[in-house]
Design a protein around this nucleic acid. Structure first.
Lengths: 133, 133
DNA sequence: TATAAAATTGAAATTATTACAAATTTTATG
DNA sequence: CATAAAATTTGTAATAATTTCAATTTTATA
């Protein structure tokens, strides 16, 4: 995705496209690895030497609030972020730690009593990936 | 469950039934609220004044390792613990914070490539419970 | 009982995240 | 263009969950 499209997408969601926000969004789009704040910081701070982690936290919170990204809590240590907000399954390899995307189950039918309203469904799988196998 | 049965269950799993371990296990069995370490500590430290949080951490790690309990990572802030290790669905109310148990989906079919081996499957639902509705 | 092994404890270290106020940048306005 | 206001970014400090670790206490064993 080119810079203009990204800029437009941010503005559509009511987010002013600053340099930092565009870089963070671009990183999320190009690295579908569900990066942590630290990973994003390590990747970008040579490009933007003044970048602070607080900005990354702020920006990602804003993205989540505006529906441009989602938090993936499959890793107990860190919060991970994903620019793909469509429902999908996450698989975490407990050997290399990588998080993979897979399709969401066709029908995730959980029998709930009335008056329980589901806003978000997460399917987290843990195991060994093809590389570590 | 009486004290003797709990003691037996610990020993069956290769865990020596100390006072602390029995109390923590009993608390987990009687409070199906997926308590945090803090909640367990608050509940037990009047009964066992010398109890330390480190012991609770140690004990719960041991329980998880030996298959007597599982970690429920539905809460991003704290790790929660569950003495029920059978697969089931967790629902967390983002209003009151309580975590509820529900049956596991009959068939959780996620299409995975060969060589991806699943060891654990978590289904986490987030929403509003019947009390907060 | 004496000794070794296991368990418990408390303090300190680690680490992810949040809070917050100051500094900087951007935008709006005269 | 100059300046004020608003928004954003930044760095430091605070918070809080968990881990580390060495010392102490308890339990098992010879």
């Amino acid at each position: 995705m080119d810079a203009l499209s990204m800029s437009n997408r941010l503005e559509t969601k009511g987010i002013r496209p600053s340099v930092q926000r565009l870089e963070i969004y671009e990183y999320l789009l190009q690295h579908r690895t569900h990066p942590t704040v630290d990973e994003i910081f390590e990747a970008l701070h040579s490009k933007i030497p003044t970048l602070s982690k607080t900005t990354i936290y702020n920006t990602l919170s804003l993205f989540v609030e505006k529906g441009l990204a989602m938090i993936v809590s499959i890793d107990e240590k860190n919060q991970r972020y994903d620019a793909c907000t469509e429902p999908h399954t996450h698989f975490r390899c407990h050997c290399c730690g990588r998080v993979f995307d897979f399709p969401f189950p066709r029908a995730l039918n959980v029998e709930l009593p009335a008056n329980f309203v589901v806003k978000q469904s997460d399917v987290f799988l843990h195991g060994i990936c093809e590389n570590c196998h």
